[in-house]
Computed example of a mutant assay.
Amino acid sequence: MTLSTFDNILDAIETLSPNDQIALFNIVQRRLSDRRRTEIATNIAKAKQDYQSGNVFRGTVDEAIAELNR
Rank of each mutant, 00 (worst) to 15 (best):
A47V: 03
I40E: 02
R36L: 15
Y51D: 07
D50G: 04
L16Y: 05
A64T: 14
T42V: 13
M1E: 13
L10Y: 13
M1S: 14
N55W: 04
G54W: 03
F57D: 02
D11S: 14
I9A: 12
G54T: 00
L32P: 06
V56L: 14
N19P: 01
P18Y: 05
R31D: 12
D50I: 03
Q21C: 04
L24T: 02
F57V: 03
D11C: 08
Q52V: 03
S17C: 01
T38M: 08
I40N: 00
Y51Q: 07
R36P: 01
I9S: 08
N8C: 09
N26G: 04
N19H: 05
A47E: 05
N69V: 09
P18F: 04
T42F: 10
Q49C: 07
A64C: 14
V56T: 10
S53C: 06
D7W: 07
L10R: 15
Q29P: 00
A45T: 10
S33I: 10
K46M: 05
A66H: 07
N26K: 13
I27R: 03
S4K: 09
A64D: 08
A47G: 04
R30F: 02
A23Y: 06
A64R: 11
D34W: 01
L68W: 14
L32E: 12
F25D: 08
L3H: 06
I40V: 15
Q29W: 05
R35K: 15
I65M: 01
P18R: 03
T42H: 12
N43Q: 14
K46E: 10
A23M: 03
S33D: 09
L32R: 09
D11G: 12
L3W: 00
I27E: 07
F25N: 07
T2M: 01
D20T: 04
V56H: 10
R37A: 13
F6E: 11
A41F: 12
Q49D: 15
A41C: 10
S53P: 03
T60M: 00
F57N: 02
D50E: 12
F57E: 00
V28F: 13
Q21L: 02
D50V: 00
Y51I: 04
D7V: 11
L10E: 13
A66N: 06
V56W: 10
N26R: 10
N19W: 04
N19I: 07
V61I: 15
Q49L: 14
L68G: 11
A23F: 09
